[in-house]
């Protein structure tokens, strides 16, 4: 048989490693790749992609099928965090939803209490998200940063319009910033530059390039991630950072994951379809370079974990 010479890519760059946790808690390291996802024959993928399970500090307004998958645990962030740990979370992603002005409009004090509760309940590393309203994010994330002093948590989201306060909190308390940009490689790079200019080292940034769900913009996220990852591997230090995406939130917003009735029969059974919607959004994004997945449904999480096991087995 003729010997076929397999072309390999000689990347000169390496994706930075970002560490979460520590200070008496479990640590998780993400990034560190010197190749495209799971191509172990031409480079290293020293850390497996991790799954952060999303929990909220108040009962979620999620679709019934998703809420019931967690049972009574959703009533309290500590018990939800424990349930998430039992479901195999590598990281807990706490959303401070109650701070949303349309929700309970809670503030710094409640945020601090929720973060402490979750930290006490589990020994996993933490990510904390604000309600995605700039002024509120600033308020509750600064409080969260302070409450989590001593361990490294990831705080999100920093956007171009409000990154300063959150990055300052990361600097003061030793945390990691989640830098969110709307599906555009240059904007992602630019925000990383602005953040590092404030003095936060690049290995304390996770990039969130904005997630589109399967059928709802997935292809845009997918391609922007491939481009970011390739630019990083080519040696661009300001794009070569680990990537975080939110397939759980995006997939479960879509009708395909929510509607049982009044949809075409050709969509099939909602129970199966909804799980696949989240899982396939996640696995597709892993193929494009995701390092951290923020997910929601235990069954989808189990499927994605099993898939990552298979990709990581050499």
């Amino acid at each position: 048989m003729p010997v076929v010479e397999i072309p390999t890519e000689k990347w000169k760059g390496k994706i930075r490693e970002v560490t979460l946790g520590g200070g008496g808690r479990k640590t998780v390291v993400v990034g560190g790749e010197t190749t495209l996802p799971f191509l172990h024959f031409e480079g290293e993928m020293p850390n497996r992609p991790v799954i952060a399970i999303e929990i909220q500090d108040c009962e979620p307004d999620w679709t019934g099928r998703l809420v019931s998958a967690w049972g009574d645990a959703v009533k309290d962030p500590a018990s939800w965090a424990k349930a998430a740990a039992a479901a195999g979370a590598d990281v807990i992603a706490l959303s401070l939803e109650s701070a949303h002005p349309d929700n309970q409009n809670t503030g710094a004090k409640e945020a601090e209490a929720s973060v402490k509760k979750v930290l006490d309940a589990v020994d996993l590393p933490l990510m904390v998200f604000g309600p995605y309203v700039a002024e509120k994010d600033n308020e509750v994330l600064v409080a969260a940063a302070d409450a989590a002093r001593g361990t490294v948590v990831a705080l999100g989201s920093c956007e171009e319009k409000n990154f300063r306060t959150i990055v300052a909190a990361c600097l003061a308390s030793g945390h990691v910033a989640i830098a969110k940009t709307p599906i555009e490689i240059n904007l992602a790079k630019q925000l990383n530059i602005l953040i590092t200019d404030m003095g936060l080292p690049a290995d304390r940034i996770l990039m969130d390039p904005t997630t589109g769900a399967l059928g709802y913009g997935l292809e845009y996220t997918y391609s922007v991630m491939e481009r970011l990852r390739m630019a990083g591997l080519q040696g661009d230090g300001m794009t070569g950072l680990p990537i975080m995406v939110t397939p759980g939130e995006e997939a479960w917003r879509q009708k395909e994951a929510k509607a049982a009735d009044g949809v075409p029969e050709a969509w099939g059974k909602i129970e199966d379809r909804a799980i696949i919607w989240e899982a396939m959004t996640a696995t597709s994004l892993l193929l494009a370079g995701a390092d951290v997945l923020v997910m929601r449904h235990p069954k989808a999480i189990e499927l994605v974990r099993a898939t990552v096991d298979k990709w990581m087995a050499k």
Binding site: W267, G268, E271, M280
Partner: peptide, 13 residues
Amino acid sequence: PSTIYPLLTLRQN
């Protein structure tokens, strides 16, 4: 259908 439909959607994307 519940697995074909996501696959057709992914292919379209």
